[in-house]
Amino acid sequence: MRKSAFAYGLLATAAFSAPVWANDDVAKLSSDPNNWAQQSGDYAGTRYSTLDQINTENVGQLKVAWTFSTGVLRGHEGGPLVIGDTMYLHSAFPNIVFALNLADEQKIIWKYTPKQDPSVIPVMCCDTVNRGVQYAEGKIFLHQADTALVALDAKTGKELWKVIDGDPKKGETGTGAPLVTKDKVIIGISGAEFGVRCHVTAYDINSGKKVWRAYSMGPDSDILVDPEKTLSLGKPVGKDSSLKTWNGDQWKIGGGS
């Protein structure tokens, strides 16, 4: 089976269950309800916690225990992660990342402030939001607005590696939360409304090296589809089936982010 099956099958199945492709460290942490190691809560994408301290009988009595401001007055999407006594949270552009010590009055352990060109803001759709960071094997992964994917040391906030996934000058931006599977971190690109030819890309979690990239449209070699094993109504889709759904070369200028 070609890696194309992973490129397209993963995103379709991860919302239900993907234990074969799970990163062992993330899966183990996610199995402990005291942690919140993924934006989705677990690899099944349930976003459900089994903790029962808050229930239907006392939820009406909830009060603010403490607050923390990121200092960014724009839309915030994506929740914080909790690993042990540490909470990791992020902001909208410029995508500041904080590590807070929950065992010591939520004091800031470290703060990471990316240096991004503000010219990316006009090409960001739907405010300057970011859907959250991801944790795996002692690293925090951040997909910045300018498309940079950054790996930070979870204990110190030190930048371990950084790669550029796209080009904001073409309308490409980064707003999604990374997804970690096995030894890879996977991200998508935003910008279809600007005629961007979108893609999903996997990077090695230890080195940042690009492992594969699958485009949303184009020839089989670009979208990583096997035309004989990919079926439509029980029959192989045939060579370069994606090109047949576009007029001329329109597949080159966007869609499907």
Rank of each mutant, 00 (worst) to 15 (best):
Q106P: 01
Q106L: 09
K107L: 07
K107R: 15
I108H: 10
I108P: 02
W110Y: 06
W110R: 03
W110A: 00
K111H: 03
K111C: 08
Y112G: 02
Y112Q: 00
T113K: 09
P114H: 06
K115P: 00
K115N: 14
Q116G: 02
D117A: 01
D117W: 00
V120R: 13
I121Q: 14
P122D: 01
V123T: 13
V123D: 10
M124W: 05
M124T: 11
C126V: 08
D127L: 04
D127S: 13
T128H: 10
V129G: 11
R131P: 02
R131E: 11
G132L: 04
V133Y: 01
Q134L: 00
Q134V: 00
Y135K: 04
Y135Q: 06
Y135N: 02
Y135R: 04
A136R: 07
A136F: 15
G138M: 02
K139C: 08
I140G: 02
F141P: 02
H143P: 01
Q144A: 04
A145C: 11
D146N: 07
T147N: 08
L149E: 00
A151G: 01
L152I: 14
L152T: 10
L152Y: 05
D153K: 00
D153P: 00
D153F: 03
A154I: 10
K155W: 00
K155Q: 14
T156N: 10
T156W: 06
T156A: 05
G157V: 05
K158M: 10
K158D: 15
E159L: 05
K162H: 12
V163P: 07
V163I: 13
I164R: 15
I164W: 08
I164C: 02
I164T: 09
D165Q: 11
D167C: 10
D167P: 08
P168K: 07
P168S: 07
G171L: 05
E172Q: 14
T173F: 10
G174T: 00
G176D: 14
G176L: 04
G176E: 09
G176V: 15
A177T: 15
A177D: 10
P178T: 00
L179G: 05
L179H: 10
V180N: 08
V185I: 12
I186W: 01
I187A: 05
I187S: 02
I189Y: 03
S190N: 13
G191H: 09
G191D: 03
G191W: 05
A192S: 12
A192Q: 14
F194K: 11
F194A: 08
G195E: 08
R197W: 01
V200R: 15
V200C: 06
T201N: 02
A202L: 11
N206Y: 09
N206T: 07
K210N: 09
